[in-house]
């Protein structure tokens, strides 16, 4: 059984100019002790999915199961979700209270879950900060006194402090320099082995994903278009959108027609797709082209 099972989640937002189909029937699973990555361009619904899992948004329909238990409605299962699923946000500068020191930030996180006295907690917090590579000099610093990389480490420490099973990483390195990003990825890999964590890694950068992920899901405007093992997605990409994303990472992609279609019916990618035919007006079936590798396209 998968650790987290997302079944046919739909989330629409009503906007003045029409309905935004942010998530349009997403099926996904997160495996235990592995990294599952979700890739796609800005605005395709990656962050909406993360927020829906955490219960910040209530889906219009569909189910989310954690170890077989329904967590779609967070109100009934709040404790289960908060104890087991944590998140690291994209922008570290916006994810901390500016009036709290590093220590106070973590203390608040610990207190939310455990009954632990101030005296006992100190050793615990020191250990937690050391595990993400923050030394003594950082304990009493405020967010504005730390750099982006240091704050992102603190953000990871806060997510891990109550020993969750799943950590959602919402573009954790995209606001960082490349050398800092590599260090953060190394840290994440180390912590995963130590604590047997499952990561749900959200990114638009297929190069980063290649380094860290075991499973890759490719999303385009609210729908999953292809998923499989990392080796399958990088070795034999089958959906035209996956191929396009891989080209974009190498800066080979030259032209990309104006923003994509947001059709309710049929293949979402059909307006941009070079192979588009009339049949694409119908909903593409899920096709298993090799074990574990699924594609939603009429031409595979």
């Amino acid at each position: 059984m998968d650790l987290l099972d997302i079944q046919n989640i739909k989330k629409y937002f009503k906007q003045p100019w029409g309905i935004n189909y942010a998530l349009d029937g997403v099926d996904m699973s997160i495996k235990e002790k592995a990294t599952t990555a979700l890739v796609g361009e800005s605005g395709c619904g990656k962050t909406t999915l993360a927020k829906t899992i955490l219960g910040f948004y209530r889906p219009d329909s569909g189910k989310i199961l954690f170890k077989g238990e329904d967590i779609t409605d967070v109100k009934t299962n709040n404790k289960l979700v908060r104890e087991n699923i944590q998140i690291v946000f994209q922008n570290p500068f916006l994810s901390f209270n500016p009036r709290y020191t590093a220590f106070a930030t973590l203390y608040e996180a610990v207190r939310a879950m455990n009954n632990i006295s101030k005296k006992e907690v100190r050793g615990f917090l020191v250990e937690s900060l050391n595990s993400v590579g923050l030394g003594e000099e950082f304990f009493f610093r405020y967010p504005h006194q730390m750099s982006g990389g240091e704050l992102q480490r603190l953000s990871i420490a806060r997510a891990l402090i109550n020993k969750p099973k799943i950590v959602i990483l919402d573009e954790p390195t995209s606001s960082l320099d490349i050398s800092t990003a590599v260090n953060i990825l190394k840290l994440l890999a180390k912590l995963q082995q130590e604590a047997l964590l499952s990561y749900f890694f959200i990114s638009h950068n297929l190069k980063l994903v290649k380094r860290i992920a075991h499973y890759v899901f490719v999303m385009y405007y609210g729908k999953i278009v292809e998923y499989g093992l990392k080796e399958q997605i990088y070795g034999f990409p089958r959906h035209p959108y996956t191929k396009l994303l891989l080209d974009a990472c190498e800066y080979k992609m030259k032209d990309y027609p104006a923003s994509g279609s947001k059709h309710k019916q049929g293949c979402v990618f059909r307006e941009i797709c070079p192979h588009s035919k009339d049949i694409c007006g119908n909903e593409p079936e899920k096709t298993e082209i090799e074990p574990n590798h699924f594609v939603f396209c009429h031409f595979v």
Binding site: E41, S42, H204, N205, L206, L244, L245, D247, A248, C249, Y251, K252, M253, K254, D255, Y256
Partner: peptide, 12 residues
Amino acid sequence: SLDVTIESQLVH
């Protein structure tokens, strides 16, 4: 501040 698909277009 842009994602890879737009980045690639701008390079060209």
